[in-house]
Amino acid sequence: MGAIVKHKAFEPGAIAVIVVFALFVAPSIFGAFWITNLTQMAVFSVVAASAGMLYGRVGLVSLGQVAPYGIGCWVTMRLAYATSLPFPVLLLIGGIVAAVIGMLIGLPALRVSGLYLALVTLMLAAALETVLGVLKFPNGGSGFSGVVTSLSDLAPMRRPGFAETDPAYFRFTVIVALLLFLLAYVFLAGKPGRAWASIRQSEPSAIAAGIAITQYKLIAFALAAFMAGVAGGLFAGSVQQSIGIDQFSRQAALFLIAVVLMGGVHTLWGALLAGFFSKVMLDLLTSYMVGGQFWNNFSLSLFGFGLMMNLIQSTKAMEKKGLLG
């Protein structure tokens, strides 16, 4: 599906404007509440980009992209409490662990494609929810899981020394997110990108063209998991304590694919839009419009509706292009 090829995934000029705005303007005009939201938007757009890349560029649907996100979050948190490693190193380790686990999980998943892959990845997201539910997120304790039960021992997770405050951490997040997007761009523009395009068009012809499809699919899974894993670490640093598993739940998995498809899987803008949908839009609605709790509860309905509209629209577009029958 989706033979629509867009080359302009990155538009340097517009991106420069956004980055300058995010780094120099936003921190001074927004209050703490919105800065936190914008930080999480940046984080979430990385996760959305990773899922969108798998779907739009490689043709793999993973409904379980919350899994590496959650793993990265957990690992980064645990190491932040347990070690004194610099924060960027923690992020890197979180990403690598997520990538390795993502690849291990990907091995059986890569034997299948299409619907089975989507179902298996959704089930794996469910499995992760169970595991994280049992392990709980570290909150400053010792041992493997690092969980303390007495409230007095709770310690917030540390942030990098140069980004202790919310605005500084926001800048840090934007820079890391930008680096991750660049990393994805390097892969997409290079040999893996061409191999993925060929796999997405047709697996049999990719094989016939001598492309090691399993290898390149694994690279895609690993890259996507790495991005999501680092994003998980960034998320941990943003929230700092008492993270609930609902961020990484089955419901969040479905929510993610909905916003990713609504945003669009082919460009960076889609990822940003997905981040906006999930982390900013609802708060805007709640804050500036009547409704309050209404929007919170119905957000799922809203995104379900959006996903359906998106599917119907893309079907129409495909029909127009003559891609269907």
Partner: peptide, 14 residues
């Protein structure tokens, strides 16, 4: 199946 996901989300919200 993504269409079903959409319906599931919609109903879950309600």
């Amino acid at each position: 199946s993504l269409g079903m996901v959409a319906v599931a989300l919609f109903l879950m919200g309600i």
